[in-house]
Nucleic acid binder design. Structure first.
Lengths: 391, 391
DNA sequence: TTGAAAGCGCTAACAT
DNA sequence: ATGTTAGCGCTTTCAA
């Protein structure tokens, strides 16, 4: 208490308020406010504006955002809701968001949900109580009552990474179908015919879309589909990846390559292969999804579909800004084009390889084929530009 | 404008305010406020308190933190200032902070400085304008006028990772000296006699303390010191690590092991060794510092000194809470004990190795020797408990 | 124990 | 173009 009073006195002595600026400039506080705000500055004569700005500079005046927010219902802050910051996917995304928003004066409030919808609900309630201007969420489920409710309440938001089945939600994600096609095409070109898939959780768009695209790609490339080649993982974790591959192997079904639903599942495959003494890529090729930091340093370096995470973040930030400024614009979805990064974890299957054939090291990047070949996407205006969909 | 008005009306219709709760409970707003705040609830009769709480529950009342903050000068938010979230060190630290503070109702405002003191100053000014209750900073330099000023202004803060030369700043860091000793001791035990060091930036405590500790450890272990065995890196980056090792090699000085100032520098060593065809650990042993995520998956897996990053974050959060509640308590510094994680990047030097000797795989963890052996630290009350220093 | 009233620092409708 | 006034939603003296 004593200390609070002290702080208070210190603040009054040191921190100038709007009325101090106004007094120094010889105007009323309202005029000072108008002069200080670029949007309303034109309501004030050039000279007074000048005097006010000088006074503010002289006093080192910084407006109190709390007081402003109380009046305006805007806070210049946005909530970023992710499952877990220590998942290597998210830091680049968050940087992408921050690099766009922080120069515009926005602050980021970051929360981790650990994929727990209750925690998420509590965090979102807290963020809304704090009057964040908008939300960027990486936690969407295909069916997601929590987020549906936000949509109904017209909370400005943008989904990243994962989408919902419900239309009307703006989102920025990778073009999962295109990426899967690249990966499967690559494996087929290498000579693989029996390609397994570790599918991620089917209540997330990434899990479901990638599985569907895998089936579609096999069909498009003239390979028969065999449900025994699919193992379902209940979470995007290394442990589940190892479990999934073990399940496939223990089924006794034959395959020479695995398309893992994401890089963490692929890491799990590495673990299991080491445990069972299976050599990658000689005995089994692995393709991941995401191109997380560091997977290029693994042994063997992981062939994977690259999602431009930083750009997911920056595009989402721009999209949210647009939602804030033109809330009545129809929601858009951006599907960012993906690339396949070919590294050391894929090779021709043992049967079709010449003994002693030297493997090339280093990495190669493959882009998507012309997108109009795939029926489920709008053709982009420029090559490799994002695919826009009106929801 | 139109839309703002709309939002406003919606809010008034849907979001209950304190006076709504008060009216429903049949009391004055002030009474409702007292009843709702656990700290002041005792001023109110049990029955009225009960009625108010029920009314609040019935309406789904959530206090407006903005209005509260304007009155109380507290925001229940804290600023986290780090160089770059995409540096793999920081996500676990931030999670550690969040896991402690968010259950207590605090929000985290995260900013990236990219090691630019100007950006940092701007961000800190913004955080202070937003009235954060305190700061956790990972950006300290040994001489740091910016932070010194914060200290003078009695801004509640805690330093993490790096310390300052100026006394009086509470901090949570790893015990750099202890960790370096473990690493050097390990190399010497393996038979190394010529151990090089890639030193990090000397204006950071981590860079300077580790270099000093390296010299001290050589001396303690009876090895001569040779300045030619030290290369200085100007930043904690992979590129600088590669450059530093190249510099050492090009000097023509002989060495069989490198203690890298941190893991990123060690990664740079890996790059250069691959480039020059030097085998690790057969021709050169490498020790890193930090035990970042994924360095256990490199080929060879990196032997490194583990800093408990998550715990750095959680301890810092607790320390900041203490600073907030008892601001007049003297500042403490916590040096967390470190462990050496022995993996595949270290082995006996070529000269002392039996040809064909099978290397053991897997990893081993070594703890610090009793700390009282080292004169610069206070002995902990329990083994491996943090070292506390009054500043 | 409760109510009345003031005010945190700012912005915006209204008046001039 | 500028000043007056009210009020954002809450907490906290002060008085009863």
């Amino acid at each position: 208490m004593d200390n609070r009073l002290f702080t208070r006195i210190m603040r009054l002595m040191t921190v100038p308020r709007l009325r101090d600026v106004a007094r120094l400039a010889g105007v009323h506080a309202a005029t000072a406010s108008r002069a200080l705000n670029p949007a309303t500055r034109s309501m004030v004569s050039a000279e007074t504006a000048q005097r006010v700005l000088e006074a503010a500079a002289q006093l080192g005046y910084v407006a109190n955002p709390i007081a402003r927010s109380l009046k305006t219902n805007r806070t210049n802050s946005i909530g970023v809701v992710i499952p877990d910051l220590t998942n290597l996917l998210f830091p680049p995304i968050v940087r992408g968001i921050d690099d766009v928003l922080s120069p515009l004066g926005y602050s980021l409030l970051l929360v981790n949900t650990d994929n727990d919808k209750e925690r998420e609900a509590a965090h979102i309630a807290s963020l809304r109580a704090r009057q964040v201007d908008g939300l960027i969420l990486a936690t969407a489920l295909l069916e997601d009552p929590l987020l549906q409710r936000l949509g109904e309440q017209r909370v400005p938001l943008v989904l990243i990474n994962r989408r919902m089945n419900t239309p009307g939600f703006p989102s920025v994600t990778g073009d999962d179908a295109g990426g899967v096609y690249l990966a499967v095409h690559h494996l087929v070109t290498l000579g693989h015919r029996r390609i397994a898939h570790l599918a991620g959780p089917q209540h997330t768009s990434t899990g479901q879309f990638r599985l569907r695209a895998y089936r579609q790609a096999l069909q498009d490339l003239g390979l028969p589909h065999d449900d025994d080649l699919v193992a379902h993982c209940s979470a995007w974790t290394e442990a589940e990846g190892a479990r999934g591959l073990a399940e496939l192997l223990d089924r006794g079904v034959e395959f020479t390559a695995v398309l893992a639903g994401n890089d963490l599942l692929a890491l799990g495959c590495y673990d299991l292969m080491r445990e069972r003494g299976i050599h990658c890529p000689d005995e089994l090729s692995i393709v991941g999804f995401n191109d997380m930091p560091i997977v290029d340093k693994l042994q063997p370096a992981l062939t994977t579909v690259r999602i431009p995470h930083y750009r997911v973040g920056s595009e989402a930030a721009h999209m949210l800004l647009e939602r804030l400024h033109k809330p009545d614009t129809p929601a858009k979805s951006i599907l960012l084009p993906l690339e396949l990064v070919v590294r050391g974890s894929t090779a021709p299957p043992a049967s079709s390889r010449r003994p002693g054939g030297a493997r090339q090291s280093g990495e190669t990047t493959l882009r998507a084929p012309a997108t109009q070949d795939r029926p489920d996407s709008v053709s982009p205006s420029r090559p490799h530009s994002p695919i826009l969909t009106e929801l």
